[in-house]
Design a protein around this nucleic acid. Structure first.
Lengths: 151, 151
DNA sequence: AAGATATCGTTAGCTGTGCTAACGATCTCC
DNA sequence: GGAGATCGTTAGCACAGCTAACGATATCTT
């Protein structure tokens, strides 16, 4: 049985998490700027680097974005020499996106810079708190996966 | 002393939190759309509703945005009748922003809808996990405050 | 084999968010 | 009363998101 009280708690917690996510990203946006990469480009580049060569359509789906949007994000990345496009030999409708060496370097550097501020704050935590926050992050990830499945 | 190992853990945790925040908001963006309010407008409206009458500049600072950006966000809200502008009598450079009754209704409805998906996932958690996640959310909020102060 | 249909990525054109620079209006301090 | 500070707006730029429409290519049907 899901009591009314429990329901209220869940709603409050959901609200807190939502608010925390918004403010966290607002803070980190400044670090993004330092790398010269916008958040969407950085996110897409990350998928290309870690997700190997990938078609534009797959990338758009992975980033929850429509194809025309991804076309322009990739164009921006390519202009900066961070990715490379190449037609698929078997199916010539497809365009495969590859990360360049420079793309990988910039991604790693950018991510480190962006996360640095947050990591600094994390380091100031006590040992117990660090463990608790780690557990919270794990649960949060599971929560997000559960939402994705339920969708 | 901050060991190298601890530093690496902090970085990994920071990275997880960052990634979780991104994906959480991507999922919730769809719910935002249903209310007809973009995320920035919804966020600003929230500050106006709960933060009482507020000047445009204060609102811009609260939302971590420059004044010209806030001018247009408020213009959009006003066009939809969610907010009302009124010059301050004492200092006529100031513009005070008030929420309308409609604005309050739409905010509450929109927030509920947006958070519903997340709350549903939260409700599926066990009692212990709920408590752990709550603790994690609290720590996260403290972390963000600490970042804001350190900035 | 040829034509109909489906899929992929791009282009064109719209809305909205973010910024800086420059400005007019107003307040404050000397 | 004048100099300088503060507030909000306007103008103009870049980027991200969307839909609609299109050309090129694959695939299915007959």
């Amino acid at each position: 049985m899901t009591s009314r009280r429990r329901e209220r708690e869940a709603l409050a917690l959901a609200d807190q998490l939502h608010s925390a996510a918004i403010h966290l990203l607002r803070h980190l946006r400044k670090e993004d700027d330092a790398s010269g990469l916008s958040a969407p480009r950085l996110s897409a580049l990350s998928v290309v680097v870690f997700g190997g060569p990938i078609t534009l359509g797959q990338l758009a789906r992975a980033e929850q974005v429509k194809p025309p949007t991804m076309t322009r994000i990739v164009a921006g990345l390519e202009k900066d020499g961070l990715v490379k496009k190449k037609g698929d030999a078997r199916d010539r409708r497809l365009t495969k996106i590859y990360a360049t060496a420079r793309g990988e370097r910039v991604l790693v550097a950018g991510r480190a810079r962006r996360v640095e501020l947050l990591a600094g704050a994390v380091e100031r935590l006590g040992k117990t708190e660090l463990a608790e926050l780690g557990r919270g992050a794990q649960l949060l990830r599971e929560l997000i996966d559960s939402m994705r499945r339920a969708q």
